[in-house]
Nucleic acid binder design. Sequence first.
DNA 1: TTCGTGATAGAG
DNA 2: TCTATCACGAAG
Length: 190
Amino acid sequence: MKKIRREFFQRDPLVCARELVGCELVWNDCGGIIVETEAYSVLNDEACHAFARPSSREFVAERPPGTAYVYLNYGVHWLLNFLVKGGAEDGFVLIRALEPTRGIETMKRRRATHLENLCSGPGKLTRALDLRGDAHGLDVFSTKSIALFAPVDPPSIQAGPRIGITKAADLPWRFIATGSRFLSKMGPVG
DNA sequence: TTCGTGATAGAG
DNA sequence: TCTATCACGAAG
């Protein structure tokens, strides 16, 4: 496992989203292999926060690529994204599911459920990791508590439409590790 | 299928 | 102030 570099996030959101699948995400003592992501672009993507939110556009302008963008959804769930900028387009990658690898017992204590269900959703994984709003704005490349590692053997990846959104729902901007048992929705591409 | 929950933005 | 909206999950 090799730590990924900042240049990783200086490409198109779609490329970043695709290549983050297979990477290991570590938050303090817990973590897992990313098996599902979604790309969001600040350009012409109505589903992206930056489309309608000035504070989000400001975040994009002021922060370096690789910054964690964490927000509360539906008043209940924290969702983890990474800022992508410096390529042809700026955007975000939403982390949607993990295959748990580290701190599994700790995560199970937080989320009393079996392994396949532990991090199989964007709100579930932040809960399992105990990652909350105070992680918002942390730079992956200068913060000890958060880290990303590149895979030794990149997995086979499939693309499909994003989940749970109403705007621009037709774009195939969701990426999954083929055949993973740890996805937010089952089936090849949801 | 429903419903809770809270930050945000834009209207009044 | 108030209200609509939102990339979800769990119970039932």
